[in-house]
Design a protein around this nucleic acid. Structure first.
Length: 957
DNA sequence: GCTCTGCGCAGAGGA
């Protein structure tokens, strides 16, 4: 339209106002679901919907912000800063002003590097996201130079820093075939440029003069208003990122490359501008940015200015900052809508792009629209459908991570603490500077506070608010009952810790999916997509003489050409079977990967393997990384994982990443058995490894992409699990499924992430599977219901001893000392319950009495486990029973067992809720005990469901 | 409505 300033474009966006923002003049709104569609079709006029809500209004976006208006889809969030408010026909309306920013989907947090990739080409951004960055030298070197730069800013000595940083990356460098000396020299060259420039900069600063006058020593860079590697999060702009350095409030970005042009590269400017926006929100007023190109040396004079320095300063105008926000809007809108970029969104020319070939191949194989065009033949339809289905599911997981992130400010401290996502009300004790210039922070925690935070986790440590207050990304070094110790780049007077949500796992899942389909072996895909039956090499050998099913399982695992599936119900010795199979493979000279979803499962399986090797082959038959002697006598076993993830007794086998490169790499590459979680299998280092076989334990707890991360690394795979126990936990969709014996197969099956590859293949290829049926855990009476209900009656006690186990077998225990109702192997105790939703104090009190009764009969509290469906009831129960009693949720009890198990159903009157819908959960709960099971709950509630009702009948028999 | 484990975070560079 025409205005007094000339022609202007505008877009009127019908919205529903959200809660007013804290900042004056900012408007947060959601685009109206119906009106927005109409505006699109009738060219910008606001239609007056009949059912207009009271909070409906219009926001007018002027000029270039109309570009962002085009991205909006019904229901998307929109934030306008410094909006103008006026009244029109009795209605408050809003419009952008010259100072306004328009932010689309502000709660979706875009990484700064994502924006940097996007500005180069949206399709390039997508390709990077899809395949991940492989292990290569330029990238590792770049990271090293950045680390050394950070160290210099924190006042660390150059040579000391280089040595330490190179050593830390020994494993990666070794896998790349680099030597420590060569890398150190390479890093030194780059770092010299920085150091020289830093020195020069320091001399010009006033502080330098003052320092020289007042003291013997020079100020460290940090004291001269520098700071390094700050994580910045913007609530307003929906951006997060870590600035290499900030000098007098302005961003400094380091690039380990050469740039002899007058101007910094555009994408580098965009990156710096992102940090400027972040700094602005944190109270800064930024108009310049600096880029440091470390390969620019004195020999390469700047072509125009003749500069010798590697630094390029540039001014950042309003226009650049707003352009960056519009870029970010494009990316966020695409992510929120779940679309795939084509490349047409940007202006890059494909002919100049050196990823052009990859881009065309990926587009061709996945049949995706692409500016570069397609090359080669598309994947078969079922593979493309699979890719789409799973990538959509992974992206939904990614959005769930982003929602978690947005909660950092959407929830207040108390809510987050109640959600176990934060530790609050900490008492700050002290911060101490460490030798490397980092800081150690100490605080006391109030007694009894729980959270999901654990040692080794990355957290946001703040003095009150993780985003608005002063906050640092910190690592939890120690988390004791009453005290905690953190390390961080800068000191913070920490009073609160928040979980820092990460996209790392979703990134790795997506890359695993990509690798399975685009890099995967054709024969493997034939099996995965039901185009070829798994093949087996027939073996005559007997591996486990006293258990036919286990023996058959080992033969299948060892003889598999493609895959073998071992179905192991509770207590059937699946971990032992895996260990036996691995031993057989190692004896055949094969290299084996041992994996599982959780660290706990990996360590359990590894422990069984070590027992197997040492017990059967003899002492000294296993070599941990430290004991390796390379003489081939002992089996080299390596556990890959973080220090905090690996169990204490498995630490000797853990591969340290730091050390002499060649030696580190050899330790990993020569290991015959490598054990790691599936997430670690998706890491850059593990992706460089190849194995003959991959054995995945607890495979029913894994999503299909999660399973691929492990099995992509091996020629054939063995999945071991039980799909009648709990499935993978997925944040994005609350899918549940009713499972019961046989007949009840009419319920819609969950697709995507909640069905494991294990389960799908078991259904697809019954011949490739073996079910273990002898259980070594439960008294016959205990196992009867689960066997009938979940395993078609096939689960049986392995021996008469197992079948006849009772509490009397335990030393010092006399069943006759127990009240009559607790003497049986299975009992039901009817408690009406207090009617609350997720807790039940009556059940808790009754269970506390029982624990006392068991104790009085001679049972050790350490032999008793209490299981509840809800965490709230778990903490209620913990208050009532002695600390030695293991109290936990069903989900967390999976994989372990106890002599006595008491189950607290925590349901009064009805059985509403997804927790009871999934019958696999009761299967887990009922199959944990060896000798006695006590069910405590409201019989009326349990009787409302057919499965629970049958359970009642069995328990009362 | 509920269960909840992983992961060197985000970003390193190439032409």
């Amino acid at each position: 339209m025409s205005t007094s300033y000339g022609e202007s474009e505008l877009a009127e966006v019908p919205v529903r106002l959200a809660v007013e923002s804290d900042r004056l003049g900012d408007v947060t709104a959601t685009t109206s679901p119906f009106d927005a569609v109409e505006t699109e079709t009738d060219g910008g006029t606001l239609s007056d919907g009949a059912a207009r809500a009271a909070d409906s209004t219009t926001i007018t976006l002027w000029n270039k912000w109309t570009e962002s208006a085009e991205l909006l889809e019904p229901g998307m969030e929109l934030l306008v800063t410094d909006a103008e408010e006026d009244e029109f026909r009795g209605e408050q309306r809003y419009a952008t002003t010259g100072d306004s920013y328009v932010v689309v989907a502000p709660s979706f947090h875009v990484n700064v590097t994502a924006i940097r990739n996007w500005v180069e080409c949206p399709r390039l951004y997508y390709l990077n996201k899809l395949s991940g960055v492989p292990l290569n030298y330029p990238v590792v070197k770049g990271t090293l130079v950045h680390e050394v730069f950070g160290d210099l800013l924190r006042g660390r000595d150059l040579e000391e820093s280089i040595d330490a940083r190179v050593e830390e990356r020994g494993l990666e460098l070794g896998l790349l075939g680099e030597t420590a000396d060569a890398v150190a020299e390479d890093v030194r060259e780059n770092a010299k440029a920085i150091e020289g420039w830093l020195e020069q900069g320091r001399l010009t600063e006033e502080e330098r003069a003052t320092a020289a006058d007042n003291s013997e020593r020079a100020f460290t860079p940090a004291e001269s208003s520098w700071r390094s590697e700050q994580l910045l999060i913007s609530e307003t702009f929906g951006i997060r990122g870590r600035a290499d350095a900030i000098r007098r409030g302005a961003p400094v970005e380091l690039k380990t490359g050469k740039n002899l042009k007058k101007e910094p590269r555009f994408k580098d400017k965009v990156q710096a501008a992102c940090y400027a926006l972040l700094l602005e929100e944190h109270g800064g007023d930024v108009d310049t940015g600096t880029l440091l190109y470390t390969k620019n040396s004195a020999l390469d004079r700047n072509e125009e200015t003749g500069d010798l320095t590697p630094a390029k300063e540039f001014s950042m105008g309003d226009g650049l900052l707003k352009f960056v926000v519009r870029l970010r809007n494009e990316l966020a809108a695409m992510e929120v809508a779940g679309d795939v970029p084509t490349g047409y969104e940007g202006s890059a020319k494909c002919e100049y792009c050196f990823e052009q070939d990859t881009c065309m191949v990926v587009s061709g194989r996945l049949d995706q629209e692409s500016k570069a065009g397609q090359i080669g033949q598309a994947l078969p339809a079922e593979e493309r459908e699979y890719f789409e289905r799973f990538s959509r599911a992974i992206e939904a997981e990614r959005r769930a991570v982003h929602r978690e992130f947005a909660k950092l400010w959407e929830q207040d401290a108390r809510e987050r603490a109640d959600d176990d996502r934060a530790l609050i009300d900490l008492a700050f004790v002290e911060s101490t500077e460490l030798a490397e210039g980092r800081w150690e922070l100490r605080a006391r925690r109030p007694g009894g506070a729980t959270s999901k935070l654990r040692e080794g986790d990355l957290v946001l440590a703040s003095d009150g608010h993780p985003v608005r207050g002063s906050a640092e990304l910190a690592r939890i070094e120690r988390l004791d009952e009453d005290e905690l110790v953190l390390t961080a780049d800068e000191p913070v007077e920490v009073t609160r810790l928040d979980v820092y949500p990460s996209e790392l796992t979703t990134d790795r899942l997506l890359a695993a999916l990509h690798d399975a389909l685009l890099k995967g072996d054709e024969r493997r895909k034939d099996v995965l997509f039901d185009r070829a039956e798994p093949a087996f090499e027939p073996l005559e050998e007997t591996f486990i003489p006293n258990n036919d099913a286990q023996d058959e399982a080992v033969r299948k695992a060892v003889g598999a050409d493609d895959c073998a599936l071992i179905h192991g119900p509770p207590g059937t010795g699946k971990t032992y079977t895996i260990a036996r199979a691995i031993r057989a493979m190692v004896e055949r000279g094969e290299r084996v990967l041992l994996s599982a979803f959780t660290n706990r499962a990996v360590d359990n399986a590894l422990e069984a393997l070590l027992d197997q090797l040492e017990g059967e082959i003899g002492e000294d038959s296993v070599a941990s990384p430290a004991q390796r002697n390379g003489d081939g006598e002992a089996v080299d076993v390596v556990r890959v994982g973080s220090e905090s993830g690996v169990r204490e007794d498995m630490q000797p086998y853990r591969l340290d990443r730091a050390g002499e490169p060649g030696e580190r790499a050899a330790t990993l590459q020569n290991a015959q058995v490598v054990a790691a979680t599936t997430a670690t299998c998706g890491s850059r280092v593990m992706k460089e490894q190849r194995f003959d076989a991959a054995l995945v334990d607890e495979a029913a707890q894994l999503t299909e992409p999660g399973t691929h991360a492990a099995i992509n690394l091996a020629d054939w795979f063995v999945l071991v699990g039980d799909h009648e126990q709990l499935p993978p936990v997925v944040q994005s969709e609350g899918r549940t499924r009713r499972v019961s014996s046989g007949a009840n197969g009419d319920e819609p099956r969950a697709a995507d992430l909640t069905e494991s590859l294990f389960e799908r293949l078991v259904d697809l290829y019954p011949g490739a599977g073996v079910m273990l049926t002898k259980q070594y855990r439960m008294n016959q009476r205990i196992q009867a219901f689960a066997s009938q209900e979940f395993y078609d009656g096939e689960l049986r006690p392995a021996t008469g001893d197992v079948a006849g186990r009772t509490l009397d077998d335990l030393s010092g225990v006399t069943r006759d000392d127990l009240p009559t109702e607790l003497r049986g192997a299975v009992t039901f105790v009817d408690v009406d319950g207090d009617g609350s939703r997720y807790t039940d104090s009556e059940e808790a009190a009754r269970i506390a009495e029982m624990v006392e009764e068991f104790r009085a009969a001679g049972l050790s509290p350490a032999d008793i486990g209490v299981i509840a469906p809800f965490r709230a009831q778990v903490s209620e129960l913990s208050k009532h029973v002695p600390a030695e009693v293991a109290v936990d949720t069903v989900d967390r009890f999976q994989g372990s067992s106890q002599e006595v198990i008491i189950v607290s159903f925590t349901a009064t009157d009805s059985l509403e809720g997804p927790i009871f819908d999934d019958y696999r959960r009761i299967n887990v709960a009922l199959t944990r005990p060896k000798r006695a099971l006590v069910l405590v709950g409201d019989a009326n509630a349990l009787a409302t469901d057919p499965v629970y009702s049958r359970m009642l009948e069995w328990a009362r028999r």
